[in-house]
């Protein structure tokens, strides 16, 4: 009889019993609803063991790759070790601080032990006094240092500290990685659409570099939106990157401020759907402002992109940040 270990609690499954039923019978609280492998509210993550294919059917590729499965339809043959999502904690220090624009700071962190992550996932940065905020990863694991882009939030305690007070070598803690907005291999010719606002550019750069590193051959369209031209950053670098890769197309977009050279003017969603009215067969990555991410999700879906091919990370601002 298989044994499931969840956060240290060992549960013996009865014959034909699902993981969900076994956990519930042992008093482990797991949210659930349809019990038919559809609604995904009972999703858990396995860190070791063999998952039956049926328990991952219909899940996004990024979830499958991380061992997520639907516990209500999971009847495994062998043992499983299960964990709640969220990653592990690492001690780290600030390796470099660099202004990318008036309001965006590039923060590089060094961890004592290497963090395993997929570019585009996020981590939670914690200061010595406990103040914590989440930031997306623009770096690749082989870069060594972890790269975050921090926007100066109005009255932001963490961003204010990083901009004005933090020094190189300062000790911090990171917890992670988390998030399902990242590139997976297997469809190297699929057209990709990457769109984001503000520091939503950070995970998109991670995803973009990861796709190229893994040999993606299909066209990659990167749209970076901002209210005004001064909200854009890394324009020179991205333009150079665009010139160096035949399949990469970088378009900065601003809502206000005329149409300076090399920048498209207008709403991000309209600029994208005007350039790409039919998106069936494409894969999309959307990061940044929650309202715009939600709007783009819907627009891309209505333009034909499959729901399982849309990956999004909405940046929710911490209350009273």
């Amino acid at each position: 009889m298989p044994t499931f270990t969840f956060s240290g609690v060992a549960c013996q499954a009865a014959p034909e019993e699902s993981v969900l039923d076994a956990l519930l019978r042992h008093g482990v609280e797991v949210s659930n609803s349809c019990r038919a492998g559809a609604c995904q509210s009972c999703m858990l993550r396995a860190t070791s063991g063999v998952l039956p294919a049926a328990s991952q059917q219909g899940l996004k590729a990024t979830l499958v790759e991380q061992g997520y499965f639907l516990s209500c339809v999971c009847r495994p043959e062998g043992d499983l070790v299960l964990e709640p999502a969220g990653g592990l904690e690492f001690t780290a220090s600030i390796a470099a601080l660099e202004r990318l624009s008036a309001n965006v700071l590039r923060v590089r962190l060094r961890t004592d032990t290497p963090l395993e992550y997929r570019p585009g996932q996020y981590l939670t940065l914690r200061r010595a006094d406990g103040l914590a905020r989440s930031y997306s990863l623009a770096s690749l694991p082989e870069d060594g240092a972890l790269e975050l882009h921090v926007r100066r939030a109005p009255r932001g305690r963490m961003s204010g500290w990083l901009f004005d007070e933090a020094r190189v070598n300062e000790a911090v803690t990171v917890r992670g990685p988390a998030g399902e907005c990242f590139y997976t291999g297997g469809s190297p010719d699929q057209p990709l659409l990457l769109a984001g606002t503000g520091t939503g550019l950070a995970p998109l750069i991670g995803i973009l570099r990861d796709a190229l590193r893994l040999g993606h051959r299909g066209p990659i369209h990167l749209y970076h939106g901002a209210l005004r031209p001064e909200g854009l950053y890394l324009r020179e670098e991205l333009r150079d990157f665009d010139s160096a890769h035949a399949n990469l197309h970088y378009t900065p977009v601003v809502l206000e401020g005329g149409e300076p050279e090399g920048i498209a003017a207008g709403a991000l969603d309209k600029t994208i759907t005007a350039a790409h009215p039919k998106l069936s067969g494409w894969r999309g990555f959307l990061c940044g402002d929650p309202g715009i991410v939600q709007l783009l999700k819907k627009k891309l879906f209505l333009a034909g992109m499959a729901s399982r091919d849309i990956f999004a990370d909405a940046f929710v601002e911490a209350p009273g940040s």
Binding site: S33, C34, A36, A38, C39, Q40, S41, G58
Partner: peptide, 8 residues
């Protein structure tokens, strides 16, 4: 997710 449960 809800639509899938409904269709099922």
């Amino acid at each position: 997710g809800k639509q899938k449960a409904f269709l099922t």
